[in-house]
């Protein structure tokens, strides 16, 4: 097989960055991460690459390959045209640490702002019951490997100064999984509307396009959250109905609790 040409971003903050080309011998089944490991072993031992499982399950090796956010461990060299230069860059949304490694700690700070799973206090865990149909939606969201490719590609975070205004698709997915959980009793809608900035998402579906777990982020998480917010704050008919009934806002839905 002919060698692959990788053009790899090299640089640290405050220093002029550059791209460095490498010719990498190709074996059958190689992915971009294999090629980066070969470069580390044979050409550039100081190349910084973050990785862990090499099985598309840890979400560590997120980069941008030919301009598209992707996991290096899922990008097969055979998927590129023969002779095509494969450009590997760090995720642009997050601050650079070195070469292909970025600082994604902002995501963990956002995560802490979301109220965690809150089951009913008066129902012991041994009595929790639910059916498969109740939990299917949440299971889709639990596939997330926190690679943060959706955060990287989201133009709201990538192109606009909205770090403190918008939590991004990854955390809208997490919030949706909590809000739709049949045992959860917390009300996160005020947070999602205001601090979470759900209105900042203009549903361009880039997050869905890059998700390596094929979670339908926009259709199944973000739009349902927008609809729940519309239920509470923007639906004039529901507003009138609530006023007629003398309630300010709908009470949180009862949890599935002890249903057999």
């Amino acid at each position: 097989m002919p060698d692959a040409t990788l053009r790899v971003y090299r640089g640290t903050p405050g220093q002029p960055a550059h791209f460095q080309d490498f010719q990498v011998p190709v074996d059958e089944g190689m992915v971009v991460l294999d090629a980066l490991h070969w470069i580390q072993a044979h050409r550039a031992p100081d190349l910084a690459v973050r990785w862990n499982c090499k099985a598309a399950k840890c979400g560590s090796c997120s980069t941008e390959i030919n301009g598209k956010p992707a996991l290096t461990c899922k990008a097969r060299l055979s998927d590129f045209a023969p002779g095509e230069t494969i450009v590997v860059e760090p995720m642009r949304t997050f601050p650079l640490i070195r070469d292909l490694v970025t600082d994604v700690s902002w995501n963990y700070e956002v995560n802490r702002r979301i109220q965690p799973f809150t089951p009913p206090a008066d129902v012991p865990q041994s009595e929790w019951r639910w059916q498969q149909q109740d939990i299917e939606r949440v299971q889709e969201f639990r596939k997330c490997i926190e690679c943060f490719l959706c955060q990287d590609v989201c133009h709201v975070l990538r192109s606009h100064e909205t770090d403190n205004l918008f939590i991004g698709p990854r955390f809208l997915v997490r919030a949706a999984g909590l809000e739709m959980h049949p045992m959860d009793t917390a009300d996160r809608l005020p947070f999602l509307k205001d601090e979470g900035g759900t209105g900042y998402c203009n549903i361009t579906k880039c997050c869905t396009e890059v998700c390596p777990e094929h979670i339908k982020i926009t259709d199944n998480a973000i739009i349902p959250l927008k609809e729940r917010i519309a239920d509470r704050y923007y639906d004039p008919f529901r507003m009138i109905w609530r006023r007629l009934r003398g309630t300010k806002a709908p009470a949180p839905a009862p949890a599935a609790t002890t249903k057999a």
Partner: peptide, 12 residues
């Protein structure tokens, strides 16, 4: 959403 998506418990 209005038909069923707004529910948290489908089997209740």
């Amino acid at each position: 959403h209005l038909v069923g998506g707004r529910l948290d418990c489908f089997s209740c």
